[in-house]
Amino acid sequence: MLDQLLRIVTQRGIHTRRELAQRLDVSEELLQQMIEELVHMGYLKPVVGDCHDRCAGCPFATGCAIGGAGRIWTLTGKGVRASDVT
């Protein structure tokens, strides 16, 4: 299931949690859990938290749309390698 998730994620572009949940035939709640596990394992990483640090020095940070309400995760190098194998 996790390997399938990694594989779909690497296929291309943005995926929403809902779309992935539908493709794997699981609930969004379970998908969220899988994402968290993959983050914990180092295959995915959250993006938004990263952004806030980097944006610390940006004068536009206050009126910035990036890093809004929705969280984003991206594959790590490890995640890409793993999806190549699986």
Binding site: G13, H15, T16, G70, I72
Partner: peptide, 11 residues
Amino acid sequence: ERVAFIMELPL
């Protein structure tokens, strides 16, 4: 280059 994301669509 391959880049991939999962996004949570906020309510």
